[in-house]
Design a protein around this nucleic acid. Structure first.
Lengths: 197, 197, 197, 197
DNA sequence: TATGAATGAGCATTCATTCAT
DNA sequence: CATGAATGAATGCTCATTCAT
């Protein structure tokens, strides 16, 4: 009845929703959409499987929300880096550093996106979101690379090819992180060798 | 009954086994172990789903055989390249070229290995095989890299880190190939920038 | 705490109980016991689904109460008509008229009784109540019919058969009312043709 | 391999399909769509629940097929009677007789149609089929009644009202048959009293 | 051998019921 | 008392696996 309680209830709901999404990120990224069990996600979030359906209408919606969150995380990371000071190469280096650091905390982001791309039963709307996201990332990367090339800081290869290689490298690192959690990723200086003149 | 017939039968069996494994490679790599349906694989090989069980005892065995084949392909590619003439950098370049070319024909190999690593229901023996494979690949790569560094052809970063980065790049390219079949992979010269001094 | 409040509370409870039973009548008669959702009934009564359990111990009890009410309505209609003045045929005609009129307001009574008869999960006690009710209705009807026959007002067919036919006709009309709400039931004069000499 | 075997297999499939539809008719008519369990139908047909899905894609399709069959049975009965010789009253009497006799063997037909009309989760196409069926039955009955009235054999009430009453009576009898299997339905002569002058 | 009918374990989803607030 | 979050049993449906033909 009192506002405090209502707020707390609301907050609890949000927390649980977040916990669900966190658990979903782990489960979906490791197993893919089809193999992931709602019961696993629920267990990961510490709730009963039935309760999942109070927060998301079905497995597909939970997956879509999880992937959307990952995409948003990427987008915000990207736009944040784009506004940093320094040369284009500095910014690309910062981006790679942040992505690599992110792999430590949340190695699932990239995996999720991969699963969503390749998996079955992924709704078309989600696939469209991902395509759009992919295009945006490439555009931003390519823009930075071209700027860096003009400044003479980045090697004069086809910018698109460089962007593709950079992303492939980061994604590959995410996968290796998942395959072997103990392994340390290659240091940043190795990654940026792809770009430097 | 007559030997000829028996041979033909034997040959037919082998052909079918191969067809099955080919279909399985495609289906498993795209959907993962759990989401792949035996019926899909059978349809891909042009036989009834019941007949699959004349060639493999169960789904797990079919998956294990498929992954083993992929691993063997890698191993043979690797050992073949190691015996090539030329500098260590030449050989590494050749390896990368072959792997990239392979992505065009059979982009599934790497994906399969990833699936096998992360999936559920993968038998321990298969996981062990993969670990061993992984270790061998790293060893060989590292050896080549060290040789190249001694020859002053390869940059003096931690060899293990370079090997890791190279593999991550190739794997990432395989994934992007799967996500967007139309996309052309980055050219070899971009890939080898990771290594060159 | 004060008596006034207690009374009001009591009254509120009664009103809510009635609202629940009214909503339950509609929902149960249209969907049957199994398909009816407690949440639907609660929504129909304008309360939360949890509150239903303050008024009825479980779904079965709510159903039983709903059916009992329908039975009581029938019984009271019947006993009221039996005490009316006029010939037995007059009273039967009056009964049919009231029943037909009732279909307009509350077409669910008969349906409910049918649902209770055929449904699963209906407690034995309820089924017994219905059997007894059925027997009583037949007895009363048959008595009236026999009287009417003695008075030469009702056709000399087996009284039990006439009673059965009359009830079947009324029930069938209730069903058609439910199937097609726009349809007008056959006029009373057609119904009583079953009986008249 | 031999044609005999193939035929037998085909025949077995048809038989099982029929057995399924027979079981479905019983289960659906007694419980309605929502409360009927696929497992019950399967058990009634003597097969496992999984096999049901080799014959019908889902519960809804099984229900639709069951109802369609019932509708077809009605339609064929009706058209058969319409071509019989004799006066319109003779034909109506024959129709009622056949319907009453049918209640003995397959009391579910009418109930099914009722369930399909009132139930939840019934696809719109099925509902349309039923509406159309209903309209056709009314038309045919009304035509017969009008003819009979012209011949002076049937009472001069509103033909539509007579048709409605006749159908309601038959439906009510079907329900009572279901409620109390032991009970004998009213004799034909009582039913036709509705019509005769 | 080859087929596909048959079985049943497993998972997504729903909903009656409970209970903390 | 009133709410709706939480639980878990039940049910539709899928699919790996078996086996009669």
């Amino acid at each position: 009845m009192c506002p405090r309680s209502a707020e707390q209830v609301e907050q609890l709901k949000d927390e649980r929703r977040s916990a669900l999404l966190r658990a979903a990120r782990v489960v979906f990224s490791r197993k893919g959409f089809a193999a992931a069990k709602i019961a696993d996600v629920a267990a990961g979030a510490g709730i009963s499987h039935g309760l999942v359906y109070h927060y998301f209408p079905d497995k597909e919606a939970l997956f879509a929300a999880t992937v959307s969150l990952a995409v948003e995380g990427w987008q915000s990371l990207l736009s944040q880096v784009l506004e940093e000071p320094g040369t284009p190469l500095d910014r690309l280096t910062s981006l790679c550093g942040k992505m690599i650091a992110g792999l430590g905390d949340e190695p699932e982001y990239l995996l999720l996106i991969i699963q969503a791309h390749t998996g079955e039963g992924v709704p078309e709307s989600l696939r469209a979101l991902l395509q759009q996201h992919r295009r945006k990332v490439f555009e931003d990367l390519t823009t930075l690379i071209v700027e860096g090339q003009r400044a003479g800081l980045i090697v004069r290869e086809i910018p698109d090819a460089l962007a593709r290689a950079l992303l492939a490298l980061i994604q590959g690192m995410a996968i290796n992180r998942l395959i072997d959690a103990g392994e340390t990723p290659p240091p940043l200086v190795v990654v940026t060798r792809l770009l430097k003149v």
